[in-house]
């Protein structure tokens, strides 16, 4: 078996074993941490499709993450106050049902991905990085200055949204929902990587000119990749908002974009489980270093710097190095 496959299996096993152990040992906080890992990894899986396979360095994925969060917040707050979002052209009421919220999130994120992609993909290189950042900032400042949903203060949702047949307030059940979505996204990414679409996208990353020459529609390919990526990251945002029962413009800030990117890179860019490894490492570092020093971001920064300078390929890349030698 390839080393990377073994590492991937170990990671997934750990993601199941740790919450189960915590459940029987009566440590709900550990389950919450595992849930956070699953959600952040899901956001990373989304970015990994654009960044790892497509080579689109999007520095504005917080836009999709935050849109997912705000979709949940807006729908749930209207449901709480029994006031419809709008009456015309049809009656649209708020909802506290996760399935409904996810559906709307998918639509909203896909639309945002489409609009941002149509404009930003006209450029490439640094200009694309900056344009994606600009769209993120646009939404960030809009969220801050738009008072209807809390503005700068954010918005609290008092009751976690429901899922048919499950009690979402029970940490282990909410974890199961998040982990199931993560597995689904990982399976989808795996299929995508080996599909003609994924291969063409990968080719377009390595050489857009050559891909175009053999008849690949690079622009359309990248647009679709960005939309898929936006949908997955948007769903992660909706779950993250549910985890905290709170949304704020911070979800849309460029630091959030940077952090999602850090998960992907620390874990290993373009690797299937890279985002999961990165998100897990991030949360472990936060829990281990946080109590030792208030300034633990220094260590995170130093580690990130070392990975970028000396260990390209991230954790999974370094652990699975021997594969490359055999191939």
């Amino acid at each position: 078996m390839k080393r990377e496959t073994m590492i991937n299996a170990a990671l997934l096993l750990a993601m199941i074993a740790v919450p189960l152990w915590a459940y029987y040992a009566g440590k709900p906080f550990t389950i919450t941490l595992a849930t956070k890992v699953a959600i952040l990894a899901l956001a990373g899986v989304g970015l990994n499709i654009a960044l790892g396979i497509g080579g689109l360095v999007s520095f504005g994925h917080a836009a999709f993450f935050g849109l997912g969060g705000y979709t949940m917040g807006i729908l749930a707050s209207h449901a709480q106050s029994y006031s419809p979002l709008f009456n015309w052209p049809f009656l649209f009421e708020g909802s506290q049902n996760m399935l409904m919220i996810w559906g709307v999130t998918i639509l909203v994120s896909a639309l945002a991905g489409l609009i941002i992609g149509l404009l930003a993909l006209r450029t490439s290189g640094v200009y694309f990085i900056m344009l994606s950042l600009a769209f993120g900032q646009m939404l960030y400042y809009f969220a801050i200055s738009w008072p209807a949903y809390g503005g700068e203060d954010g918005l609290s949702i008092y009751v976690r949204n429901g899922f048919p047949g499950l009690n979402t307030l029970d940490p282990i059940q909410f974890f199961a929902i998040c982990f199931a979505l993560l597995l689904l996204a990982l399976f989808f990414t795996h299929r995508l990587m080996n599909s003609p679409f994924g291969l063409a996208l990968n080719a377009a990353r390595q050489s857009p000119l050559r891909a175009a020459t053999v008849g690949v529609g690079v622009f359309r390919l990248r647009l679709v990749a960005l939309i898929i990526s936006a949908i997955i990251t948007g769903l992660a945002g909706a779950l993250y908002a549910d985890l905290n029962r709170f949304i704020s413009p911070t979800m849309l800030s460029w630091q959030t974009s940077g952090e999602i990117m850090v998960f992907v890179i620390l874990g290993g860019v373009g690797r299937l489980m890279g985002p999961l490894a990165g998100a897990a490492l991030f949360i472990i570092l936060e829990q281990v270093l946080g109590p030792i020093s208030e300034y633990w971001h220094i260590y995170l920064g130093a580690m990130l710097l070392l990975v970028v300078l000396f260990a390209r390929g991230g954790i999974i890349g370094s652990l699975a190095k021997r594969d490359a030698a055999h191939e």
Binding site: I298, L304, L309
Partner: peptide
């Protein structure tokens, strides 16, 4: 060490520098 690297590496390494500078100054 970053001049020959692609933009992604540059963005990440300098993002890491921000973390180090900010937290160092706070310290």
């Amino acid at each position: 060490r970053l001049y020959a690297r692609d933009h992604l590496d540059q963005v990440l390494a300098t993002f890491a520098l921000i973390l180090i500078f900010s937290e160092g100054t706070r310290w």
